[in-house]
Design a protein around this nucleic acid. Sequence first.
DNA 1: AATGAATGAGGATTCATTCAT
DNA 2: CATGAATGAATCCTCATTCAT
Lengths: 216, 216, 216, 216
Amino acid sequence: MEQWIAEMLQLNDSESKMTDKQLKIIEAAVEIFSTKGFAASSTSEIAQKAGVAEGTIFRHYKTKKDLLLSIVTPMMARLIAPFILKDFNKVLNSAYPNYEDFLRALIKNRMEFARHNLPIIKIMLHELPFQNDLNQQFKEHIASKVIHRMKEITDHFQKEGQIIPLPSPVVIRLSVTVLIGFLFARFLLLPELDWDEEQEIEFTIDFIMHGLAPRN
Amino acid sequence: MEQWIAEMLQLNDSESKMTDKQLKIIEAAVEIFSTKGFAASSTSEIAQKAGVAEGTIFRHYKTKKDLLLSIVTPMMARLIAPFILKDFNKVLNSAYPNYEDFLRALIKNRMEFARHNLPIIKIMLHELPFQNDLNQQFKEHIASKVIHRMKEITDHFQKEGQIIPLPSPVVIRLSVTVLIGFLFARFLLLPELDWDEEQEIEFTIDFIMHGLAPRN
Amino acid sequence: MEQWIAEMLQLNDSESKMTDKQLKIIEAAVEIFSTKGFAASSTSEIAQKAGVAEGTIFRHYKTKKDLLLSIVTPMMARLIAPFILKDFNKVLNSAYPNYEDFLRALIKNRMEFARHNLPIIKIMLHELPFQNDLNQQFKEHIASKVIHRMKEITDHFQKEGQIIPLPSPVVIRLSVTVLIGFLFARFLLLPELDWDEEQEIEFTIDFIMHGLAPRN
Amino acid sequence: MEQWIAEMLQLNDSESKMTDKQLKIIEAAVEIFSTKGFAASSTSEIAQKAGVAEGTIFRHYKTKKDLLLSIVTPMMARLIAPFILKDFNKVLNSAYPNYEDFLRALIKNRMEFARHNLPIIKIMLHELPFQNDLNQQFKEHIASKVIHRMKEITDHFQKEGQIIPLPSPVVIRLSVTVLIGFLFARFLLLPELDWDEEQEIEFTIDFIMHGLAPRN
DNA sequence: AATGAATGAGGATTCATTCAT
DNA sequence: CATGAATGAATCCTCATTCAT
């Protein structure tokens, strides 16, 4: 778990170098928050698991909540990374000649993302409903952007006649719903199953494509 | 909120009379648990909101956890009520000549259920990952039954050639995913929107039906 | 255990008839007080063990402390019963021609008493240091009487030259110490041992008699 | 005789990495436990008397029970210190040519011990019957060792013909009973009396020696 | 930067006692 | 008489946070 956390945080905080202890604290916090929930986790347990004195946590993070935010906030950005890449439009026009390819790329990309960031994603899911600031941050900066981009894409493929001309919120909802449903089943609900991911992905995409195919 | 709670608990405890205070406690607990999460809710706050001495809570529920279970456990049963109705088979064969009708009945039924039990459903969703006993209860008594029934239904309509002969777990996952995705969006993610439920339901069903239509 | 408790309390409260429930309460209290100590015993546990509602205890005994006193106080009187029998002087002069016989009678009598009242004796021992009123009661009404009588007896046998003419407090202390030490070992310290009581008593008396024999 | 004192103090010093506050806590706890009993003492009262926040107690002692044990357990060892000194055998053979001298040394030694540790001894006496772990600890590590040593000594002096050849448990019981009886009377039962300790000790030893003298 | 002792407000829970039924 | 629901003060204990070192 260490590498990707360091990596992830360096992305965001490229200038502020993390101490070794600081990293250990984040690692411990991620594990404990993700298994017990934020409210049920104690800073002393985190300190212990991090091999750090209790006070040390508060030298780096003013409050327990701060610690949470320092974990979840950067993850938010990465959650929508594929939707805000600068060359997304280019990609949109050239790389994905059809909705199916786009879906396949998206699903695979987010799948790897989920695979490597599962604990933090869990934390995010659990705390979004309770932490108002997180919730707002999510709605304002994340959801709106994803929806915006998805709308562009949907419009694009609808114009091309590739998918059914339903209102774009409906198309987005249906697509995303199935996509997230798959990830949810794969990683959260039944992670212990022996999934044939390739095949499931194809079933899933095929399902969406037929569901959204223009009616004749 | 009072009526349906009373109703719900009368279902379960038709003989055991709840005190007035006990009911107040449950109501307060439901509201507080659902807005702050179990771990972040304090019994003293519950007592205050219920207009009851804190000790009174513990006269009726040995533990805070007990109070949670007394709220969530009966809800579990009702969660799958439509799947274990005695006359389900009859219904299956006669009332729903096709998968579409079945889906429509199911989606509408669960929609009403969600509408009337939203707070407790929230509690359930939030606590399932953290309360091991709840989780196990859910997997053993709820999920397995739903899956079992869904498999029967899927097999039935697959035999009739109404839906694509994919492995039933896949069919179930795709159907349920879309269904739950809709309920989730409607009631949890964007409840403040002005939904045209009838139309959304039709879009959703249409999407599933085309997604699962036999390929020619 | 029931009979002797009833008996004991009827001795004291010969006029006020105990309810069945009241008796049950006393029985339960004796058992629980003696195994957990007064402070660590809860009235609710007593009520439960007595098969009685919590409130019922307080109908008969105004406070938990009252309940304790109602158990211990009558036992106090019986503790010194042999020392205040009306015909004690007669007995003194006629029945016990020597100190040895007196000791033997005393030791056997108190032994039976201890055997039949062990739990209450335990309660008394444990609570005497903590309950000031009990303590005072004990010193004023019990200890002083025993000492007074013992002094008479000691004086008597010292005058007869049967025992060493030490100050009577010393003689009393040594005699009583050995006696109680034996009872303590027999019933409290090592009750599970297989005691040959007759022999131990003879050893004990012989020890005291030689220890107090006039020096030549 | 100073040796065991030195040793005893080393026992105490070795573990003293005590904070000032920690010491205050122990002092307060000893006083309150000894006057009200463990169960009737509240941690808040201890904290108050120690001039410390209540939380501080639990930083040093996980549990109220832990606090009790940290007071009583080391006292247990010191209770039998004179019986487990390494050079006890030497002492046995050389320093105490007769049982009387041994008794005198023992009684004086334990008397000083009692004088200086009265409150903790009280705590021990009160809690031994209720705290199972303490009880077991006492029986296994303390009582058995004392009895073992006493048996050696008794055997020794019986072989020399100095004391009556009764079964050693009887001899031990009688000796210890009188000794403890004296300490009990002196320090617990009638501490306010103006004791002539030297004389009482001599009376007591004389009593035992005559009681255990070989019959002719 | 790091520690860890100290804090005190707040946590869940227990308890003796009361009172309407 | 007996009940048992209700109480609220008190209990033991936890926790996030501070601060002197």
